[in-house]
């Protein structure tokens, strides 16, 4: 059995009673070695989930285990890049990389950091860098730590398409070479599609979909045909145009393909359908189910 990079059991977080739950009753498992897209609308709880996994927040309820231990114990083996790419503004680029080496003496890999930060002006103060340059430096710090799990919160938001493509390439090469697990959050799916083989859809503080993207897509079909009962399938979203019905369903048994025109949905269609239908039931593939015995450990 492969270990879990992240395993959440009934995880919940609130930032004070008045503001409600940022995350509630989250249970899922992310196996190691995956490139996982953490998607969901703004304010869905993606950043909260990543902060909890990085050990920056303590859960209000439930638990999260990372690489088989608590987030605090796993700290040397995790890298985390926050959405706003915080860096010490008064240090130079070279100083920042030096600080990375000082703060991660056991694992620091200068070459890995330079692969991304090498193009930056080394003597420039961090406060003078552009948004894209800051992202580069933040990612370089994360890569230089040579982590087993990278938690990246909206990593590509500030980058132009060329830089995005290049940095994605470096991350993917890193993951392929060292078996690093990567979790990347985004509210723009196209940013991650193609690179990721695992998917977590978070919406309204809950995990709505979790598992291998291929399996999740394969579990759904877009049915088009004359309006009639869709049972036994679970309807995620349906639309009627005249007598014509188009529905995105989760299949519960074989589909009568004489009555329906059956098509596989794109990942984007699937996600949008789920976001538009908050009452559609959650789907976790077997590998994404939290295991109870770990929860009690």
């Amino acid at each position: 059995m492969t270990g879990a990079a992240i395993e959440a059991n009934g995880l919940g977080m609130t930032y004070g009673r008045k503001r409600g739950w940022a995350l509630r009753d989250c249970s899922f498992r992310l196996p190691t070695g995956r490139i996982c897209a953490l998607v969901g609308p703004n304010g869905a709880g993606k950043s909260t989930l990543l902060s909890l996994a990085a050990g920056l927040l303590r859960p209000a309820e439930g638990s999260v285990r990372v690489l088989g231990s608590t987030p605090a114990e796993a700290r040397p083996r995790i890298a985390y890049v926050s959405q706003d790419k915080p860096l010490y503004p008064q240090l130079t680029v070279a100083d920042t990389l030096w600080a990375g080496a000082q703060l991660n003496p056991a694992s620091w890999d200068r070459a890995a950091a330079d692969r991304i930060a090498g193009v930056l002006p080394q003597d420039a103060k961090v406060r003078t860098l552009s948004g894209g340059q800051r992202t580069r430096l933040a990612l370089a710090l994360a890569l230089g730590k040579r982590p087993e799990l990278m938690l990246l919160d909206e990593p590509m938001a500030d980058l132009d398409p060329l830089a995005r493509h290049q940095l994605m390439g470096v991350l993917m090469a890193e993951a392929a070479e060292h078996g690093t697990t990567i979790v990347m959050s985004s509210h723009i799916l196209t940013e991650l599609e193609g690179a990721c083989d695992y998917l977590l859809l978070v919406d309204g503080g809950r995990v709505r979909l979790g598992g291998e993207s291929d399996d999740i897509v394969a579990a759904h079909s877009v049915l088009t045909g004359q309006a009639r009962d869709l049972a036994p399938h679970t309807v995620v979203e349906s639309r009627t145009t005249g007598r014509q019905l188009t529905a995105l369903v989760r299949r519960e048994g074989p589909v009568d393909d004489t009555a329906w025109d059956v098509k596989e949905p794109s990942l984007e269609e699937l996600l949008l359908a789920h976001l538009r239908s908050p009452e559609a039931p959650a789907l976790l593939t077997p590998s994404a189910h939290a295991r109870e015995e770990v929860a009690t450990a």
């Binding site: 050990g55 915080p86 010490y88 003496p105």
Partner: peptide, 14 residues
């Protein structure tokens, strides 16, 4: 205030 604690606390140092 500037959020750099998120950087400091996610290095190998508790």
């Amino acid at each position: 205030e500037t959020g750099t604690f998120r950087l400091s606390w996610t290095q190998s140092v508790s």
